[in-house]
Simulated scan of single mutants.
Amino acid sequence: MEGRADDDTITAELGRLLESTVRRLEADGARTEALASYQSRRPILGVRRSPVMVPVDRVWRLGVLLLDARGRLFTIGSVTRAVEPGRATHQNPRAEERRDHRRAAYQGKFAEGDTVNWDAQEVELDEAALRAGDGVVALRDGVLSVRWSKQAGPDGYTALAPYLDERAALLTAPLP
């Protein structure tokens, strides 16, 4: 029974932490970014159409995490800008791939110049996932932690509360 009370405490603490971070970011008018899904489109009259990015939500970028207004966390996937993709040069396949991503965002329903995140995965925040200790957000030595670095071992993690506080402060700090 003791483990269940601990689980309830951990989830309640995490819920309060995410809720207070959302309130702070909303109150400070922090800049959001788009969260999108990359979708292929059906051909029209046999003509193939290029894929497009479809808006899913607005999120705040907090280091290695994306946070939405409902308190859900996402890992960072890929990112692009909704800008005119430019002309194809066919010189570098990787550059052409990035241009295709810009085109998909530009043809989506995003404001010009908007930062668009896709391939982001929602972070599991249930007790079992937190206790497993190997996710982006994990319970490490009794402390809610975030893997801020791909470095193996405990050095890749830091406490979640100060991490979110610092990242929210950076996001809401006035421009120099």
Rank of each mutant, 00 (worst) to 15 (best):
E2A: 09
R4G: 06
R4D: 14
R4M: 14
A5V: 08
D6E: 14
D6H: 11
D7Q: 11
D8Q: 13
T9M: 11
T9C: 10
A12Q: 13
A12V: 11
E13L: 06
E13W: 03
E13I: 01
G15R: 13
R16P: 00
R16G: 14
L17T: 11
L17C: 10
L18K: 05
E19A: 15
R23C: 13
R24Y: 08
L25H: 00
E26G: 06
A27I: 06
D28G: 13
D28P: 00
G29K: 03
A30R: 02
R31V: 09
R31A: 13
T32H: 02
E33Q: 11
E33M: 10
E33W: 04
A34F: 01
L35H: 02
A36H: 03
A36P: 00
S40W: 03
R42L: 12
R42E: 10
P43W: 06
I44H: 12
L45I: 06
V47F: 09
R48Q: 11
V52D: 04
M53Y: 05
M53R: 04
W60I: 09
W60M: 10
G63K: 01
V64D: 10
V64E: 14
V64M: 12
L65H: 03
L65R: 07
L66M: 07
D68Q: 05
A69K: 03
R70E: 15
R70T: 15
L73H: 03
I76D: 07
T80K: 02
T80M: 06
A82I: 00
A82T: 01
G86I: 12
R87F: 12
R87Q: 13
A88F: 11
A88C: 09
T89F: 12
T89Q: 13
H90C: 13
P93H: 11
R94L: 15
E96I: 07
E97F: 09
R98E: 13
D100L: 11
Y106Q: 03
K109N: 15
K109D: 15
K109T: 15
A111H: 13
E112L: 15
T115E: 11
V116Q: 06
N117Q: 14
W118K: 02
D119V: 05
D119M: 12
Q121A: 15
D126P: 00
E127G: 08
A128F: 05
A128T: 14
A129Q: 06
L130P: 04
R131T: 08
R131H: 07
D134A: 12
D134G: 09
D134E: 14
G135P: 00
V136S: 09
V136N: 05
V136M: 10
R140H: 12
D141L: 07
G142Y: 08
V143M: 10
V146P: 00
R147H: 04
K150F: 09
Q151I: 07
A152V: 07
G156K: 04
A159C: 04
A159I: 05
A161Y: 01
P162H: 14
Y163H: 08
L164G: 05
L164H: 03
E166N: 07
R167M: 11
L170D: 15
L171Y: 03
L171D: 05
A173E: 12
P176I: 06
P176S: 11
